[in-house]
Computed example of a mutant assay.
Amino acid sequence: MSTEYAQRIPETPEESGRLLDKVVPPPHRPPLLYRAMAANPAVLRAYVEGPILGLRGLLHTGQLAPDERELCILRVTARCGAEHEWGVHVAYFGKTSGLSPVQVAATVLGEDADQPWSPRQRAIVALADAMVDMRELSDAELAGIDQVLTVETRTEVVAISAQYLGISATCRALDIPPEPGAPRFPVAAG
């Protein structure tokens, strides 16, 4: 973490410190995003205990396979330029998500001809991209999505995309740098 950024993080209020210890027990260190939000204990509490990220949250519904959930999160955070959140997810969930290293890189760089997405993954990427672009899906995209995703699954992908649009905006607005030790965005060869 840069010294400049470390100096901008305010002292953690006692209430936030207790909450951070509960959510990310020592000796682990909370991500920079959590530390930035800790300046306001009410915001931090709502963020980590609320219906979206709490134990009942979208990260743990079991309705999407781990690779599908992470594909959606990585694509949204990459498209939004939220390198901090993208790197945290690659570091914490990358090895267990089921996505290949080429697929993880493709969330930033675009699809690699040697590792195309499955039709289901392509539908998730299309939904995530439409959310980031704040646009309607094309007829062709809708047809492809209808063939491989149920309405319930589509709704969950949209909800996860919306949540990570907000998280990405937070990372960007607070200028949160990449998490120390987490992967950085890959750079296209060429």
Rank of each mutant, 00 (worst) to 15 (best):
T150L: 04
T150D: 05
T150I: 05
T150H: 05
T150Y: 05
V151N: 09
V151K: 13
V151P: 00
V151L: 12
E152P: 01
E152W: 00
E152M: 04
E152Q: 12
T153G: 14
R154L: 09
R154D: 09
R154P: 08
R154Y: 07
R154E: 14
R154V: 07
T155Q: 12
T155H: 06
T155I: 00
T155R: 12
E156F: 01
V157G: 05
V157S: 02
V157E: 07
V157H: 05
V158Q: 07
V158E: 05
V158R: 10
V158D: 00
A159L: 13
A159S: 10
A159I: 00
I160C: 01
I160T: 09
I160V: 14
S161E: 09
S161C: 14
A162P: 00
A162F: 06
A162L: 13
A162D: 04
Q163D: 11
Q163W: 12
Q163R: 11
Q163G: 00
Y164M: 05
Y164G: 05
Y164A: 04
Y164L: 08
L165R: 12
L165Y: 06
G166L: 14
G166K: 05
G166M: 15
G166C: 14
I167Y: 00
I167A: 06
S168R: 10
S168C: 12
S168E: 07
A169Q: 13
A169H: 10
A169I: 13
A169E: 12
A169D: 14
A169P: 00
T170Y: 14
T170I: 09
C171L: 04
C171M: 13
C171W: 01
R172A: 11
R172G: 07
A173N: 13
L174W: 12
L174S: 06
L174H: 07
D175V: 10
D175C: 07
D175M: 11
I176L: 06
I176A: 03
P177D: 06
P177Y: 08
P178I: 04
P178Q: 06
P178W: 03
P178Y: 06
E179G: 07
E179Q: 15
E179T: 08
E179P: 11
P180V: 01
P180C: 03
P180K: 03
P180S: 06
P180A: 05
G181Q: 02
G181K: 01
G181Y: 02
A182N: 02
A182D: 01
P183K: 04
P183L: 03
R184W: 00
R184L: 10
R184F: 01
F185H: 06
F185K: 01
F185Y: 11
